[in-house]
Design a protein around this nucleic acid. Structure first.
Lengths: 215, 215, 215, 215
DNA sequence: TATGAATGAGAATTCATTCAT
DNA sequence: CATGAATGAATTCTCATTCAT
């Protein structure tokens, strides 16, 4: 049995969170993975780590804080993936491909992450939580935009569409793919389908060779 | 105060639902619009229409049935929009533009519809409800695919990407736009942004004039 | 599909009850037969006869009155059976055997009757209802006592035990048999088992031949 | 005010149940005693012990579990009484007398026990609960049969009727006595009447002295 | 007579949170 | 740090009954 949180981003967990807090976040992710966000109750959470309900409140001051921390953790993982790819030395398409496939790999290996990220009404429509998800998406967007602009400069990517528009289309289609996978009960191979999607995206956004010739 | 349900699809409401049922669905939509799906409780619902809680059960046998009917209603509106566009005499891009702008117009005028459609865990992860949403998306997909294939045959739309892949990318980006709008608290003009999105999509998927020339 | 009430005691039903009332009592018995007394709700009752809930109150002023009438009807059937046997020309054992087997036959053919008769807390512990059941049992008791006293006089039945005690033991064992049958979900042949019980009772209560000889 | 549960079977209560659980079972028994099984609601139960409704669920996971535990407790008391009598060194009639009078004493002192044992539809016709009552009755039957067979071997009890038939008749008449007592609102002295019943039973089932002489 | 609609009371259960020990 | 217990508010749903039409 793998513990989700502790696999990733040890730095984050170790420095920011106590052992028990890590355990709680781990359990929260597991619960969400098994039964959706509505399975994440304080009762289930405490049962999962073998303590009494009140004990949770020694480590987090409310359920919202649990979710907030969970999103911090998740955001940290995802964003650091973006940064790694962003800092890579490679052509734009390779980077885009890495961005998407890395993301899908993360979700494929940790379905609960997908559930959390896709989840709209996380808890009582808490703005704080919405914002965190929004932040993550913003980061993804800016990373994509940078990559795309590089590609446009280098002539790899078409220039007749603004970089943010291209980024938007990519993100939308990746997100929908993850969404379908989640709704389907994770019943297909996300990474496999991702390969097709990446190829579609590449075809869509690559600069036309003909253009250069004709000019 | 506008009543959402009664605006649209009078046939559906009149033939299938009683006056009170329509009123309840209306109220349900309003509640969801104001406070998300979690604001849709039997108590709120009954208070909204000024009756006692138990009275709801004279008109719907359970909360699930309320939601199910709501989705039927919503599905009916959306799908009939698809069908109208599908049956139009127009070039593919016009159709695609109508498909998207009509959809966004619907949501812009009825934000709760967006919340419902985007919602993952509507109620207790009821499969019945999931399925209805899934059906609507399937219908959208097949409509898009038909239009795209027409466009590919007529030379309007690029043929180097499979029609279902194109449809997928379109749907993903439209969905993400609605999503952002919803998360932002409906704070920007959905239709306005939609115009840009449509133009982006058009540019992305149109056949390259150059191709023909060069061949 | 047999209608319980209308089979028996037409006089009672025709003279005392209206057609609709008979129908309601019929339905009540059917419901109790299918799901116990807790299945007898006004909702189920009205659904069974195809009217609206309020309509029941045109014919009975309350649920208690439905049950009360039901017990009257049932009492009438049972008591008239007692009276028939009581008036028979036959030896005591034949009469006792007829009393018991007739009763068991009635229940075997109409399981709901057994459920009603055995039911302790019919509805809100209504004293009125309790009393009716009590009356029926009293009538059974006095009939048995009469028969037994006849038998004691004629030398068929032992005289070392008071007639009411004998009656009591008989009723207790018959009742327990019906009880077991009911709890078992009517899963054995009540009449078949009754034959054994009757024979046991006969052996228990018959006068010892030896006694007379030895005296 | 006497607390029913804590009087009996301290071992059972102490080892299996917490203090609060005992208190709840106590209160449940009291409520049933006062108003029948339908008086046993979570609301009444919590009010009785002075807590809020939800607090019950810290100690029992459902109402069914409350009733189930109550039956376990009751079964434990009754069955251990059977076992005590069964293990006694005494002639069969003494044992039978002890069996019956002990049982009646228990009920006389705790009328709710009678209500529970006699109750048909304890709660939603839960099979689990039915079964527990059935088990208790089975145990009573087998204890009686053993005693009777001893008596038949020793020549105390008549042998012309099968032991299980005799046991059945005894149980039926005891049960009916308790039943009448319960229906009457506990208005007569159960133990006093029991004495007469026991004597009747004894006379009914004892071996005839004359038989031996005549043989 | 019957319908359609509503009422009011009450049912069991769940949930996040608090607090004394 | 954790437990055990409780709170209070909310949730879905059921039931007998009433009443205008």
């Amino acid at each position: 049995m793998c513990t989700f949180a502790s696999e990733h981003s040890l730095t984050f967990m170790e420095t920011i969170l106590s052992k028990r807090q890590t355990e709680i976040i781990d359990a929260a992710i597991k619960l969400i993975g098994e039964g959706g966000i509505q399975a994440l109750t304080i009762k289930n959470l405490s049962a999962e780590i073998g303590v009494v309900e009140g004990a949770i409140y020694r480590h987090f001051k409310s359920k919202i804080e649990v979710l907030s921390t969970l999103l911090d953790f998740l955001g940290h993982i995802i964003v650091s993936h973006y940064e790694n790819v962003g800092a890579m030395k490679a052509d734009s398409f390779t980077k885009i491909q890495k961005m998407i496939s890395g993301q899908l790999k993360l979700f494929a290996e940790n379905p609960p992450y997908a559930l959390v990220i896709l989840s709209d009404g996380l808890y009582k429509n808490e703005k704080t939580l919405h914002d965190k998800i929004f932040q993550i998406m913003q980061k993804a967007k800016s990373t994509f935009i940078n990559i795309i602009e590089e590609g446009q400069k280098s002539g790899e990517i078409r220039t007749d569409i603004a970089s943010d528009q291209i980024a938007f289309v990519i993100m939308g289609s990746v997100r929908l793919k993850v969404n379908q996978w989640s709704i389907s009960g994770f019943s297909f191979d996300l990474q496999e389908r991702g390969v097709i999607l990446i190829s579609t995206i590449k075809t869509l956004i690559q600069a036309q060779k003909n253009d250069d010739i004709n000019k």
